[in-house]
Design a protein around this nucleic acid. Sequence first.
DNA 1: AAAATATAGTTTGATATAAAACTATTTTTC
DNA 2: GAAAAATAGTTTTATATCAAACTATATTTT
Lengths: 161, 161
Amino acid sequence: MKENQPLDIVGEMNKNPRLQIIRASGRFHKAMIALTNRKIKEAGHDLSLEHAVILKNLLQKDGQSQQELAENTFKHKSSVTFLIDNMVKRNLVVRVPDQLDKRGKLIYLTELGRGLLSEIFPILFDQMHAVTEEIDEKDLKRCITVLEKLLENTQALGDNH
Amino acid sequence: MKENQPLDIVGEMNKNPRLQIIRASGRFHKAMIALTNRKIKEAGHDLSLEHAVILKNLLQKDGQSQQELAENTFKHKSSVTFLIDNMVKRNLVVRVPDQLDKRGKLIYLTELGRGLLSEIFPILFDQMHAVTEEIDEKDLKRCITVLEKLLENTQALGDNH
DNA sequence: AAAATATAGTTTGATATAAAACTATTTTTC
DNA sequence: GAAAAATAGTTTTATATCAAACTATATTTT
């Protein structure tokens, strides 16, 4: 029908699943981060999720270089410098010059950092479970597969930087 | 088996699809934003995706208040003030005091803003398609449904602020 | 109509990200 | 072994977000 002309280009665009998946992934992720940060705060802890991500990585492998941490947490090395600075001040981690490579610094968890992380973990688990509770695990896994494929495509398109 | 003890709590945690979906959504979204911004830049345009989102919303409904824009773009009103300030300086939009409500300002696209947006659109479409190309539309839609459900759950948990 | 409350937008301060320039080392290459 | 290139981390500058305090105007309550 001639009547159905592109009067509302944006409206049509918004209905496109290729755009919707981009928006949906962003909105969920943002909301989830905000929720988790709020719950950590409400539980009386002073730690952002970004810090927790670093600490969690160190729990898995202590004494990583900042470069390693940046790669493992998908952050820029300058962001890692910033986050580590903050946590060194609060005695949650220590920064030790690497004896074998004088350019490098190795980051280790302190007992304080390890203890704080252990208090944060249950909150992370609770939120993670609460949010995904009624969703079928198969659907969840399918969705992860799609998102990982999308990430792969996105990275491939960006490789010719 | 007794051998399979929780030696690597974080490793186990990382394999949990409830955590994976959070990370996967964030990584894809972040990569997609970065890719699109890079492509816009490479095409010689000086406009961030955040600005484009505002302009796109105005194309759909011109003369919105900043409050409306904030709600429609899922941003804080202070972020909108910041983004609009920038675009007013560059004559992409105009900010007009609302005659009916002297607290409010109405934002309108300029011809320059409209023109720039029309040059950005093809880039957005291209990236959107390139990234989702080989993915079955049904899978895409299923994934969106899951993400929307997750968002809904997240918001419900946060409502008791 | 005055007082209390709500709303629109701005401002300020803090956090996080990102890119580029920079310093200090280490590794590679010739 | 000296020169060139690569790497680790820091610093600087810019962007974007979020939260809280604030100003001005509107609306509701009494």
